[in-house]
Amino acid sequence: MAEHNMQETDKALPEPGRLSKYLADFFASPAAAIGFITLLVICCLALFAPWISPQNPYDLMQLDIMDGRLAPGSESMTGFVYHLGTDSQGRDILSGILYGLRTSLLVGVLSAFAAAIIGTTAGLFAAYMGRRTEIVIMRLVDLQLSFPTILMALMMLAVLGKGVLNVVIALIIAEWATYARTVRATALVEREKEYIEAARMLRLPGWRILFRHLLPNCLAPVIVIATMQVARAIGLEATLSFLGLGASVTEPSLGMLISTGYQYLLTGLYWISFFPGIALLVTIVAINLVGDRLRDVLNPRNAS
């Protein structure tokens, strides 16, 4: 039976027929299924925020400073109910969360995706070229991985200055190395296999071997890392925004919302920080649950 599995995992990507098996595997775990559905809901909320949120929190015209710091369930002067209360500028927290999710998810997905592309390319390149290219790339990777992400991000922000876009850039620079290392390791194993040898014998062009043959075999770990990385990036963006290095006060992300609530926390106005934090937590947990399961499902060693 073991041999049977080995043969199967030798094949690179799931063929269409196997995809359904992966899906079935994935949803066999209730935690993963719950995580996935939660994530789906969160994505929809973020996507449709402009249509479903009671207020546009970025439009200062809609904010009334007189409604500032209202407790959850309060009614505005115009009879509007703030279900989760308002922040100091009279911004509806619920709307703030919905819009903040947009920023968070965008930053997370964008940075993880870009880092994946850069890191994967670098890792493939290192594995395929070997020799000096490999040494240079991998030394850079080692160097970077010996420093924690937040330090790299702080370093970048110190250089680039504050702002959401700079946070994205900082996250990409801080995270690409993880992909590069994993992809190189996978590609090195793959490079030694006979079919790559055969492809070289056929004198297929280098890029073709790289992207048509090596890349598909490295995709499974990349997908897993990317999923986890989205969660990490969202957390980091929130952290950096909380530290005042990310999103601006007028267009708050979740981290910024929490940050604005910080000063009122001591006086007992918990909701400004509490609810956005819950939203952040649920999002990150959901992504981690999905990622955890993906790792189990896509890992050839667990393919029984």
Binding site: A231, G235, A238, T239, F242, L243, G255, I258, G261, Y262, L265, L266, G268, Y270, S273, F274, G277, L280, L281, I284, V285, N288, L289, D292
Partner: peptide, 22 residues
């Protein structure tokens, strides 16, 4: 531990203040 992994540190800090101090 999954929760501990996912909880944003800064938010937990705020909640700690809220519960234990406030």
């Amino acid at each position: 531990s999954i929760l501990g992994f996912s909880l944003p540190t800064f938010w937990v800090g705020l909640m700690l203040i809220m519960v234990f101090s406030v």
